[in-house]
Nucleic acid binder design. Sequence first.
DNA 1: GTCTATAGATAGATAGAC
DNA 2: GTCTATCTATCTATAGAC
Lengths: 183, 183
Amino acid sequence: MQDRREIILKAAIATLREHGFSGFTQPRVAKRADLRQSHLTYYFPTRLALLEGVARLAVDGQLAALQSIVDLPTVAAVIKNITAMIGRHENTRVLMALAQAADEEPSLRSLFRELADGIVSRLRQLLENLHLNGTEEQVLLIHALSVGLAVVDLATQRPHSKRRVEAILESLFATLASKDKKQ
Amino acid sequence: MQDRREIILKAAIATLREHGFSGFTQPRVAKRADLRQSHLTYYFPTRLALLEGVARLAVDGQLAALQSIVDLPTVAAVIKNITAMIGRHENTRVLMALAQAADEEPSLRSLFRELADGIVSRLRQLLENLHLNGTEEQVLLIHALSVGLAVVDLATQRPHSKRRVEAILESLFATLASKDKKQ
DNA sequence: GTCTATAGATAGATAGAC
DNA sequence: GTCTATCTATCTATAGAC
C-alpha cells in the first residue's frame, strides 16, 4: 500500500490532466483518492499546499520524460518524440495549469523556473548529442516553440495537427543542420 | 452612454486581464460593471454566454493589434513590437484563458481557431511586406514561437526577459533573411 | 423589457472527535 | 496522529417583482 500522501498526489495530477486548472478542486481530488475533502486537508492544509505538491511531481515527471528524448540517436527520432509529447493534451493541460499557478503564486513561480531551466539545459545537451551546435538563442527558441505548439494544438484540436507540428520541427532542424554545415 | 452589454463585456475582459481564467466569475464582472450579478445574467444568461461574448471581443482586439504590426516597414520595428506584445502579461492572460476555454468548450474552440488562422494569415502578409519569403512552416513557427514566448514569459516573470525575447526573435529573423539571400 | 431577491450547488478551511 | 462533521464564503441560475 502506498503512502497516503502519494496516493493523493497521484489523484491530484490525474484531476489536473482531465479537468485542467479550473477543474482542480479539493473535493474532486479527494473523491478520486477515496477520502473526504476534510481529510485531504489534513495532509495538505491548503489548496496551495496541494498545488505545490502536485507541481513538484509534474516538474520531475516532465524533466524525466524529456531526458529520455535527449539520448535518442537521430534527428528523426527526436522530432517524432517531441511531436508525440506536444500532442499529449493531458500533459499540456498540466503544464498550462502550472504556468497559470506560477503567474498567481510566487512559490510556484520558482518551481516553474526550475522546469524551464531544466528543459533548456536538456535541449542544449540534445543538440550537442546530435552534433548540432546551436546558439543559446536557438535552444531557447526550441523550448518556446514547443510550448507554443502544444498550447495551440490543445486549443485548436485540429484533425491533422500532428503532421503540421512535425513539418514545422523538421523545417527548423533542417535550418539548424544547414547552418552547421556552413561553419 | 454605452450600451449596457458593451459595458459588461469591457468589465469582463478587464476581469480576465487581471485575474485570469480561474478568477473570471460573474460576481466579479458584475461588480466591475456596477450592477448585480443577477442582473448580469439577464444580458448573459450563462457563464458560457458571457465567455463567448468576451472571447469574440478578445479575438477581434488581438487581430487588430497584430494588424498594426503587419504594416511596419522594417524588421527591427516588427521585432520591437512583437516583443512588446509578448511582454504584455494581461494580454497573455486573456489569450491563455481563451485557450483553456477552447479546450473545454467546442463553441469557443471555433473562435480560437479563427484567432489562430487570423494570426497566421497576418504573419504571412507581414513576411511578404518585409520581402522575406517564408515557407508556410516558417509562418506557423513564428506564430507558435510567439505564443510559447508569451506563456513562458508570463509564468517565469524574469527580470530581463525582454532582452531574451528580442534576441530570440532577432536570431530567427536573421535566419530568414540569410535564407532569402541564398535563393 | 429591466432588474432583484433568493435558491441551490460547490468551494475551501476549521474545530474538534476518536 | 488520523479522520470527520460542520461552518462560512462564493459561485451560478431561476423565479418572479416592477
